[in-house]
């Protein structure tokens, strides 16, 4: 990434040195009455200003290109290679994250929905057998009923083994369905790094531009934008540290009850 160290407040040393030297020279030329030389110096000073801006913009452009070029992750198999080679920019990558997390969530819910009826059927059968078993132990059961219970217990062992195996299978597939985290985590970290690099470079550009503003005497009026509460803003990060954001359902309930809900 960018190797130059700008302390964000002062211009490049070589530029300030040039400015200082030429400023002294300019004063000397004006004092000596050499106005043509003085004008030449002013024009050179202009060039120094322009060139320093061009140089910084060039640097930033290169850094941005580098950041975008470096923005790739290492695919581990042909399938991932194909999936990733199609993605050349950050928004595609983030769409890929949405897609992967979405399909993992759906896969998990499919498995949960398949396992739940089996778990509840095991529970129901066990409960019914337990009740009859207790009747047997209290010697409240007729021989015909016992024979029926005997068959149901036999059947219960068979279905319970099958159901438990199926539930176990669903659970281990649910475990596997979480493997998206590895790949989406990598993608998101790369996007985060890119965003940070772009932000750093934009900041440098802004600082550079502010130096030019200083030189040209330009001032900007910044308008504060008020965000309407009606616009959706999505999940709030660091909610616990912010006064304008609720930190959980209890906070919501307190706020609503204070409004008479």
């Amino acid at each position: 990434m960018s190797t130059h160290t700008n302390d964000n407040n002062s211009l490049d040393d070589t530029i300030t040195d040039t400015l200082r030297a030429q400023a002294h020279q300019l004063v000397d030329e004006v004092n000596a009455g050499n106005y043509a030389n003085a004008m030449g110096l002013i024009s050179e000073l202009n060039d120094v200003r322009d060139q320093s801006l061009y140089r910084e913009v060039g640097r930033l452009t290169r850094s941005l290109h580098e950041a975008i070029h470096n923005f790739h992750i290492d695919p581990q198999n042909a399938e991932q290679q194909e999936a990733l080679s199609k993605m050349s920019d950050a928004s595609d990558r983030l769409a890929y994250v949405v897609e992967m997390t979405g399909s993992a969530a759906n896969r998990t819910m499919d498995l949960v929905e398949a396992a739940m009826p089996r778990a509840s059927s095991m529970c129901e059968q066990a409960r019914s057998l337990r009740d009859d078993w207790q009747r047997l132990r209290r010697r409240e059961m007729a021989p015909a009923e016992f024979r029926e219970l005997y068959h149901r217990i036999d059947q219960f062992f068979v279905t319970t083994t099958e159901d438990a195996e199926a539930v176990y299978g669903s659970l281990s597939e649910i475990l596997l369905a979480q493997d998206f985290q590895d790949l989406t985590g990598q993608v998101i970290q790369k996007v985060t790094t890119l965003v940070k690099e772009v932000e750093e470079n934009l900041l440098s550009l802004v600082v550079m531009a502010s130096h030019v503003d200083q030189l040209t005497g330009t001032t900007h009026e910044l308008k504060r934008e008020n965000v309407s509460p009606e616009l959706g803003q999505g999940p709030q990060i660091n909610a616990a540290e912010r006064a304008d954001v609720v930190s959980g359902q209890d906070d919501v309930d307190d706020l609503l009850s204070s409004l008479g809900f």
Binding site: P229, E230, G232, Q233, G234, P235, Q236, A239, D244, V245, V246, G248, Q249, V252, L255, L256, L259, F261
Partner: peptide
Amino acid sequence: EAKRDQIVAAAQAGVNGYVV
């Protein structure tokens, strides 16, 4: 949506319950 002014706006617009 978890901003206080949003929850207040929803309440004023006549929401019956708010789950965050």
